[in-house]
Design a protein around this nucleic acid. Structure first.
Length: 880
DNA sequence: GACCTGCTGCGGTGTG
C-alpha cells in the first residue's frame, strides 16, 4: 500500500466512515491515471471519493515533501453549477487537508468572492479552486491565463447531469477543450521534470517562459496528462454523458465509468383523496388535500413540500398559515424569486433543525445536502421520473436511511401519474439529458473571450473546438463565418462599428479596445432572464423580485401576498416596488412567467402503460383502485383506450364542435399536434379553430361542423409526410424563432444588456434583437444564428422529435372515434384549462370550475362557460 | 412583446 493510500485508510478510520466499494474502485482508477464519470447519488460521500484519491496521488508523488509549505500552484479545479455548493465542498476539503497535515489552501472563486480576493488569487493560486462554469470563462478572459492552469492535474465537473443538455454544459465543454490543450503543451515540455511546480524559492506559480504561441497540434503520443472526472446522478444516457464531457480526442482506453450502485431505499406513497368522485377533476393547486398533508407534516420531524410553481408555493404557505397558525415561526418558504438573504436564512435554519416544514420549488432540488430532512412531499405532477427521484432523495439523507416521499395529486386523473412514477422507479427508467449541439452563440462568446485575453489563432482554435462533442460537426466554412462575424460584423453588420470587436494581427485574433473587453467580461454566461422588479420595504430591506407586468396592474393601496406576507403596494421607483405591511387578509398572489415543463416522454410512456392496464381491468395499484369510479364513468360516457388504440372524442355544444384527442404525450407536443391537425383539417374543410391542451390531450374547437369521420379516413391525417412543411404553415414558426433569437443574441454578444445596476430597458432590447432578426432574415438568410433560432424553436418549443414519434405511434393504432353527450373525465380538465386565468381575477378557479360543471351537468349541455384567452389556433376561413 | 399555471442557474465596470 502506498503512503497516500495509507493516509486515506487512516482518514476513513478516524472519521468512522465506511469506505464503499465504489470509493475503492474510484481510488484505483484515479491512481492508474484514468479519467471518466462517477455515477453516485448525493449523500454517498462522492466528494471525498474523488478528493481523497487526488490527495493520495499527490502524496505518492511527493512522499517526503508534502508536509512542508510549498507553492504548488493550481492542481485541482472543481466546477459546480451552483455558487452555494462551492462553499460547502470547500469546507469539507479544507478540513480533510488540515487533518492530514497538508498545508493547502482551498479557495472558491465565484461572483460572491470579493474583488480583493479575486486579485489575490491571480497573484498566488490556491492548490484547489472551486468555481462555476461562468467564472472559469472569466478566468479565460484574463491575460496570461495559461499560466494559471499550467500545473493543473485534475478537473472535476460536479453535478454534470445538471449542466449536460444546457448551454452552460457547452460552455464547460469549451472550457475543458482549452484546459486539455494547455495541458498537452505543458505536459510535453514538462516531461522528465519531476520538480516542476515545486520551486520553493519563487512565489511564481510555474517557471516557464510566457507562452506566445499556443500549443502544437496534438499528436497521439502527447495526449493530455490532465485527468477529467465528472460526477453525475443517474440519468438515461450516462455513457453519452461521459463522451460529451471528455470530448472526441480522449483515448478510450483512458476512460472509466464508476457506478456507486448504492441502493437507496425509497418509500413512495400517493395521497389518495377519501372520495375520488368528489375530488377535483381539474385544477393544479391541490389544496383540498391540505389536511392529509398536514397530518404527515405533524408526524415528521422535518418536511420539504415541493410545488411546481412559485405562486403555488406562496398559495400553500399562505393556506397552511391560515389553517394551522401554530406553524408560524417553524415554517418557511423557498423559491427563486425570494431575496437571497431570506433563502440563505432558510437553508441555515434547516441545517440547525429549527424548521418543521419548508414549502419550496426546485430551488431546493440541489444544495440541501447535509441538511436533515426526513420527509418529502411532492404536490402536483413532478413531470419526470428523475426529478421526483432527486426530490425524494432529499429525505433520509444519511447513507442507509430510507427516503420517504409522498405524491399529492392536484386533480383526480393525476393520481394515475403516482402509479406511473412508482412503476417507472421500480423499472429503473430515467430521463436522458440530450447534449446541445452546434450552439453558435456560445461559440461566438467563447471566441471573443479568448480574444479578450491572450488572443487566439484560427487553425489552433478550430482543432480544439472540433475535439468537443458539441462542435464535432462544425465545418470550416461555418467557423470562418463566425470569424468573419466577430471581426467585421459579417455580411450584414459590417457598417456598424459596434460589431467589429476583434482585430487580426499577424494571424492572432485579439480584442484591443478596453471598452469592448470590459463589456464582454460583463456579459459572459449563457443564462438570460426576464427583467424583474425588486420588492422593498419602505423602511429598507428587500423581499425579492416580481414581474413588471404584475406590478403594472397594481394601484397604490392595493394589497398582495408575497414572500408569505400581506403587503400594501405604495409606488414604483427605478425598477423597485415599495411596499409596507398590510393587515388585510385578502390579496392577490403574483404569478411568474417561467418555463413550461411538459410531461417527460419516459413518464408519459409509463403513464400510457398504466392506462392500458386500466383498460384491461388490471387493478393492482391503489391509485387505480381509487380511480375506478372515474374510469367507469369514462368507459360509460366514451371509451378507455388500450395501448393499441387512439381515442378521439367528438362533442357538440352551443359553443361549437369540440374534437378531443388523447396522445398522452405532454403539452408541448399537443400544442404542435393540435395546430398541425387543425391545419390539415382546414385544407379539407376551411374552418377556424381554437386550441386547448394539457399533458394528456388537446381540444380543437370550431364554429363549423367538421366531418371528422371523413377526415379520419384520409391516410394523411396523422402522417409524418410533409411534417416540417405543414408545421411551417400551421404555426407561427417565425415568431417562435424570433423569441429564441433574443436569447441567442444576448449570448452571442449582439446586444449589450447594460452595466450592472443600470440595465438597458427590456423594451429596447426586445426592439433591437427583433430588428437584428429581421435584418438577418432579409439580407442573410443563411445566417448561422438565425438558423440556430429556428432549430431551437423546433427542438425545444415544439419537441419535433417527440411529435414525430407520437405521430408514428398513432399511425399504428386503431382510431376509436366516440361521439359523446357531455365532457368525459378525460375531456374535462382540458376544457377547464382553456378557461382564462388572468392574474388579477376575483373569481377563483374553483368557482369557475364549479360553474362550468353546473353548466354542463344537470341541464345537460347548457350555456357554455366563458372561454376567454384561448390560444388562437389557425385561422383559415372559407375561400382561403 | 407575449405569456395567461408553470423551475432552476451565473456574472458584474469605469475615470481623472
Amino acid at each position: 500500500m502506498t503512503k497516500g493510500q495509507q493516509i486515506i485508510q487512516q482518514w476513513y478510520r478516524q472519521k468512522n466512515w465506511q469506505q464503499f466499494a465504489f470509493q475503492r474502485e474510484m481510488e484505483a482508477a484515479y491512481l492508474s491515471g484514468y479519467s471518466g464519470l462517477l455515477n453516485a447519488p448525493t449523500g454517498s460521500g462522492k466528494t471525498f471519493a474523488l478528493f481523497l484519491p487526488f490527495l493520495a496521488g499527490f502524496i505518492n508523488k511527493y512522499p517526503d515533501t508534502y508536509t512542508t509549505q510549498k507553492n504548488n500552484g493550481l492542481l485541482m479545479l472543481w466546477i459546480t453549477p451552483l455558487r452555494a455548493l462551492t462553499n460547502d465542498i470547500r469546507k469539507a476539503m479544507q478540513e480533510a487537508c488540515d487533518e492530514i497535515g497538508l498545508p493547502w489552501h482551498i479557495a472558491t472563486r465565484t461572483g460572491d468572492t470579493p474583488a480583493a480576493e479575486k486579485q489575490a488569487l491571480k497573484k498566488k493560486l490556491p492548490e484547489v479552486l472551486l468555481t462555476t462554469p461562468e467564472s472559469l470563462h472569466l478566468m479565460l478572459a484574463q491575460k496570461e491565463y495559461p499560466k494559471m492552469f499550467g500545473n493543473l492535474q485534475i478537473v472535476v465537473i460536479d453535478e454534470w447531469h445538471e449542466l449536460l443538455g444546457t448551454k452552460r454544459g457547452v460552455q464547460v465543454e469549451l472550457g475543458l477543450s482549452k484546459l486539455k490543450a494547455l495541458s498537452v503543451g505543458i505536459g510535453v515540455r514538462d516531461a522528465g521534470n519531476e520538480e516542476y511546480g515545486l520551486d520553493e524559492n519563487k512565489n511564481t506559480i510555474i517557471d516557464h517562459p510566457p507562452r506566445t504561441t499556443h500549443h502544437a497540434p496534438r499528436s497521439p503520443e502527447s495526449r493530455t496528462p490532465l485527468k477529467i472526472w465528472g460526477i453525475s446522478a443517474t440519468i438515461g444516457n450516462l455513457e453519452q454523458a461521459a463522451e460529451v464531457l471528455l470530448g472526441n480526442d480522449f483515448p478510450s482506453e483512458k476512460i472509466k465509468m464508476i457506478r456507486a450502485n448504492l441502493e437507496k431505499k425509497l418509500d413512495i406513497r400517493s395521497i389518495i383523496p377519501d372520495n375520488v368522485e368528489n375530488y377535483s377533476w381539474a385544477g393544479h393547486i391541490g389544496l383540498k388535500l391540505l389536511p392529509q398533508v398536514m397530518e404527515i407534516v405533524a408526524r415528521s420531524k422535518t418536511t420539504l413540500i415541493f410545488t411546481n410553481t412559485r405562486s403555488q408555493s406562496e398559495i400553500w404557505y399562505h393556506a397552511i398559515l391560515d389553517n394551522y397558525p401554530e406553524y408560524a415561526g417553524i415554517m418557511a418558504m423557498h423559491h427563486g424569486s425570494l431575496d437571497n438573504e431570506l433563502r440563505n436564512w432558510v437553508e441555515q435554519a434547516l441545517h440547525a433543525e429549527a424548521l418543521k416544514v419548508v414549502v419550496c420549488t426546485s430551488s431546493l432540488d440541489l444544495g440541501v445536502d447535509f441538511r436533515p430532512v426526513d420527509t418529502v412531499i411532492q404536490v402536483g405532477s413532478p413531470k419526470g421520473v428523475a426529478r421526483f427521484m432527486q426530490r425524494a432523495g432529499r429525505s433520509g439523507h444519511h447513507p442507509g436511511a430510507v427516503s420517504k416521499a409522498y405524491f399529492v395529486p392536484t386533480h383526480s386523473l393525476e393520481l394515475l401519474e403516482g402509479a406511473a412514477l412508482k412503476a417507472a422507479i421500480k423499472k429503473g427508467i430515467f430521463e436522458s439529458r440530450d447534449p446541445m449541439l452546434l450552439t453558435m452563440d456560445v461559440l461566438i462568446q467563447y471566441m471573443v473571450t479568448l480574444a479578450v485575453s491572450d488572443g487566439f489563432r484560427a487553425n489552433e482554435l478550430f482543432n480544439e473546438i472540433k475535439s468537443t462533442y458539441a462542435f464535432a460537426d462544425i465545418t470550416r466554412n461555418e467557423f470562418d463565418q463566425l470569424l468573419d462575424f466577430i471581426t467585421s460584423g459579417g455580411k450584414t453588420l459590417a457598417q456598424y462599428d459596434e460589431f467589429l470587436k476583434v482585430e487580426v494581427e499577424n494571424g492572432l485574433y485579439k480584442v484591443n479596445s478596453r471598452r469592448v473587453a470590459m463589456r464582454h467580461r460583463l456579459s459572459i454566461g449563457t443564462i438570460t432572464s426576464e427583467l424583474s422588479v425588486r420588492v422593498k420595504w419602505l423602511s429598507g430591506g428587500s423581499l425579492g423580485t416580481i414581474e413588471e407586468s404584475f406590478i403594472s396592474k397594481l394601484k397604490p393601496g392595493n394589497t398582495f401576498w408575497f414572500a408569505g406576507r400581506s403587503l400594501e403596494f405604495i409606488r414604483v421607483k427605478e425598477m423597485t416596488a415599495y411596499v409596507k405591511k398590510s393587515n388585510s387578509t385578502k390579496g392577490i398572489i403574483p404569478s411568474w412567467n417561467g418555463g413550461r415543463m411538459p410531461l417527460s416522454s419516459q413518464l408519459a410512456a409509463v403513464f400510457r402503460d398504466k392506462l392500458d392496464e386500466v383498460a384491461h381491468g388490471v387493478e393492482k395499484d391503489e391509485e387505480v383502485i381509487a380511480l375506478k369510479p372515474l374510469f367507469n364513468l369514462q368507459q360509460e360516457l366514451s371509451h378507455l383506450p388500450q395501448s393499441n388504440e387512439f381515442l378521439i372524442e367528438s362533442f357538440k355544444s352551443r359553443e361549437g364542435h369540440h374534437l378531443l384527442f388523447y396522445p398522452f404525450e405532454g403539452r408541448l407536443v399537443h400544442e404542435g399536434m393540435a395546430s398541425l391537425l387543425a391545419f390539415r383539417i382546414s385544407k379539407i374543410k376551411p374552418a377556424s379553430f381554437s386550441i386547448a391542451m394539457n399533458d394528456y390531450g388537446f381540444e380543437l374547437l370550431t364554429d363549423d361542423d367538421i366531418p371528422i369521420e371523413e377526415i379520419l379516413e384520409d391516410a394523411g391525417f396523422f402522417s409524418i409526410d410533409n411534417l416540417l412543411d405543414d408545421i411551417q404553415h400551421s404555426l407561427n414558426a417565425n415568431e417562435m424563432a424570433r423569441r429564441r433569437f433574443r436569447d441567442i443574441a444576448h449570448i452571442g454578444g449582439l446586444v449589450f444588456t447594460g452595466y450592472p445596476g443600470q440595465q438597458v430597458k427590456n423594451r429596447h432590447l426586445q426592439a433591437s434583437t427583433s430588428l437584428l432578426f429581421e435584418v438577418f432574415s432579409e439580407y442573410e438568410p443563411n445566417n448561422l444564428l438565425v438558423r440556430q433560432a429556428y432549430n431551437e424553436a423546433l427542438a425545444f418549443q415544439l419537441e419535433e422529435f417527440r411529435l414525430r414519434a407520437a405521430l408514428q405511434r398513432i399511425a399504428t393504432q386503431n382510431i376509436i372515434l366516440k361521439v359523446i353527450e357531455r365532457p368525459t373525465p378525460f375531456a374535462f380538465p382540458i376544457m377547464v384549462d382553456s378557461l382564462g386565468r388572468e392574474r388579477l381575477t376575483t373569481e377563483t378557479l374553483e368557482e369557475r370550475i364549479a360553474k362550468m360543471a353546473r353548466s354542463y351537468g344537470a341541464e345537460g349541455v347548457a350555456e357554455p362557460a366563458e372561454r376567454r384567452n384561448r390560444k388562437p389556433g389557425i385561422t383559415r376561413k372559407k375561400g382561403f
